[in-house]
């Protein structure tokens, strides 16, 4: 049983050439070239509306594009080659976790067939793998944020693809659940030789998990390389149009907004900046 569910060694890499996407005449991606090594964790970073999600969605074949997206053998990737963990999944009412994960087998079924015993075994072993045994019969609408995230991940794993795309997978989770989910993805990547492309909001988290970062701005690739080289304070500050500083704590890279003057005074007056300031404080505490 494990033999059928364990993924084979990665040989598949992906490349995008001159990828262009336009919505209603407005270019969202203007010619992106990207090579993806097998087994790599590639982090896509960039401000809101830079084109991170669009890049992921065009690789997944969900939006029409010009240019090419191809696997090493030249094929356009299908749902058997890559799975997508959406940013805000749609949760059907009355569906159990086991049923939801079973949907991940869709690409492996012929048009008129229904799931075989081995498809169901894949689901069982994926659920066990992600410690979701006790949730199998639960309704997907009754899950907490962290549980829900693991369930979507389980569905993607049931798809048994070598490449997995994550669209800001943890934006709805608190810090503890965020790193738990990403650690899990990383562990699966190492054990199964998965290739991961993740659009990530938080730059420090991106630096922690990704082997390689790609910075996108206004539909163009601005920087591509190891976190060390891409996370440059000057570059980031100009792309995000705000003053950012990059610090090194032990071996980790942390990106922070520049210290504000009259901080105390502003805190008292602007309640709507509260959440922003909280995360700021969180980072501060880590550093002391």
């Amino acid at each position: 049983m494990t033999a059928s569910t364990r993924l084979r060694a990665p040989t598949v890499a992906l490349s995008c050439r001159g990828l262009k996407v336009a919505f209603r005449g407005r270019e969202v991606l203007c010619g992106v070239d990207l090579e993806l090594g097998a087994g790599e964790w590639l982090g896509l970073i960039g401000p809101n509306g830079a084109g991170k999600s669009t890049l992921l969605r065009s690789i997944a074949g969900l939006v029409a594009y010009d240019g090419t997206v191809a696997l090493t053998d030249g094929r356009v990737p299908s749902a058997r080659d890559l799975s997508l963990v959406p940013q805000t999944p749609l949760w059907p009412s009355g569906m159990t976790v086991a049923e939801y994960v079973l949907l991940g087998r869709t690409a492996h079924l012929s048009w008129l067939a229904s799931e075989s015993r081995s498809d169901r075994q894949v689901v069982a072993s994926v659920l066990r793998r992600l410690s979701l045994e006790d949730f199998a019969e639960r309704l997907v609408t009754n899950l907490s944020g962290g549980e829900a995230q693991r369930v979507v991940l389980a569905r993607a794993l049931a798809q048994q693809t070598r490449i997995i795309l994550l669209d800001e997978p943890t934006s709805a989770l608190d810090l503890g659940h965020q790193s738990a989910v990403l650690e899990l993805v990383d562990e699966l990547r190492r054990s199964d030789g998965l290739t991961v492309i993740a659009a990530m909001h938080d730059l420090s988290t991106a630096a922690r998990f990704a082997d390689r970062l790609v910075l996108i701005n206004e539909g163009r690739l601005v920087a591509d390389g190891e976190p060390d080289s891409v996370l440059d304070a000057g570059l980031l500050s100009s792309v995000y149009a705000t003053q950012l500083t990059v610090r090194r704590l032990d071996s980790e890279i942390v990106v922070l907004p520049a210290p504000r003057t009259h901080r105390k005074h502003l805190d008292d007056q602007t309640g709507d900046r509260r959440t922003n300031d909280n995360s700021h404080d969180g980072n501060r505490q880590e550093s002391t």
Binding site: P86, L103, T106, R155
Partner: peptide, 22 residues
């Protein structure tokens, strides 16, 4: 009857259904 399986896949929306291979 033979196509009703697809209706369960459609319940997650067109985008996700497409990314699942439908």
């Amino acid at each position: 009857m033979t196509h009703r399986r697809h209706l369960d896949v459609l319940r997650v929306g067109d985008d996700e259904a497409r990314s699942l291979g439908l």
